Simulated scan of single mutants.
Amino acid sequence: MIASTKTLATLKKISYFLLLCLFVQCQPKAKEEKSENETTKNTKTTNVSTKIATLSLAEANRLAALPLHCMQEEYPNKLNQTIGSEEDLQSPKALHPAFYGCFDWHSSVHGHWSLVTLLKQFPNLENSAEIREKLAENISKENIEIEILYFKGKYNKSFERTYGWAWLLKLAEELHTWDDPLARELEMNLQPMTDIIVQGYLDFLPKLNYPIRVGEHTNTAFGLTFAYDYAKTVENAALKSLIEQRAKDFYMSDENCPISWEPSGFDFLSPCLEEADIMRRILSKEDFKTWLNKFLPQLANKDFQLAQGKVSDRTDGKLVHLDGVNFSRAWCLYGIANEFTEYAHLKNVANEHINYSLPSIVDDNYEGTHWLGSFAIYALNTAANVQVD
Rank of each mutant, 00 (worst) to 15 (best):
G309W: 02
L190Y: 11
K248I: 08
L19K: 12
I146F: 09
L135W: 01
L168K: 00
T382F: 01
N47P: 02
L380A: 09
G373N: 08
A379M: 04
D203M: 13
D104Y: 00
E59H: 05
L57C: 12
E174G: 09
K134M: 12
H96N: 13
E235R: 09
R161A: 15
R281C: 01
S253C: 02
L239S: 15
V386P: 02
V116R: 05
L283Y: 04
T40C: 00
D254P: 04
M1F: 12
K78R: 12
F222V: 05
E147T: 05
I196A: 01
T7Y: 05
D88S: 11
N301H: 01
F23H: 03
N77I: 09
W331Y: 14
Q298M: 06
L182G: 15
I139W: 01
R329T: 08
K93W: 06
K207T: 15
E130Y: 02
E74S: 03
E173T: 15
I139D: 00
E244W: 04
S35R: 15
Y251C: 06
N256R: 15
K44C: 11
F226W: 03
G373H: 10
A65R: 09
Y16E: 06
A9D: 09
V109A: 04
P181L: 02
E38R: 13
Y201A: 12
E86C: 06
K152Y: 10
L358T: 11
I243N: 07
F288L: 02
A172W: 06
N80M: 10
S264N: 14
L380I: 04
E275L: 03
L205H: 03
N156T: 07
A337W: 08
F304Q: 00
E32V: 13
S360P: 00
G84R: 11
E126G: 12
K141A: 04
N80P: 01
T341H: 08
D104P: 02
P28N: 07
E216G: 00
N355R: 03
T341P: 01
G223V: 12
L358I: 15
A64L: 00
Q191N: 14
L322A: 08
V320S: 13
E275V: 12
K34F: 00
D277M: 14
K347F: 12
G84H: 06
N385P: 04
Y155M: 10
V386M: 10
L205C: 13
H112W: 01
E174C: 07
C26M: 06
F250H: 10
F304P: 11
L208I: 10
W261F: 07
L66W: 08
L115E: 08
K29E: 14
E38M: 15
N138F: 06
R161C: 07
E137I: 06
N301R: 06
H112Q: 11
L57W: 01
A94D: 09
E36M: 06
S107G: 05
Q27N: 14
L22V: 08
S107A: 11
L135S: 07
Y16N: 14
F151N: 14
I336S: 10
D323K: 02
D249K: 09
E339K: 13
F204L: 09
L322M: 12
S253F: 11
S264L: 04
E74W: 03
K13A: 05
H110N: 04
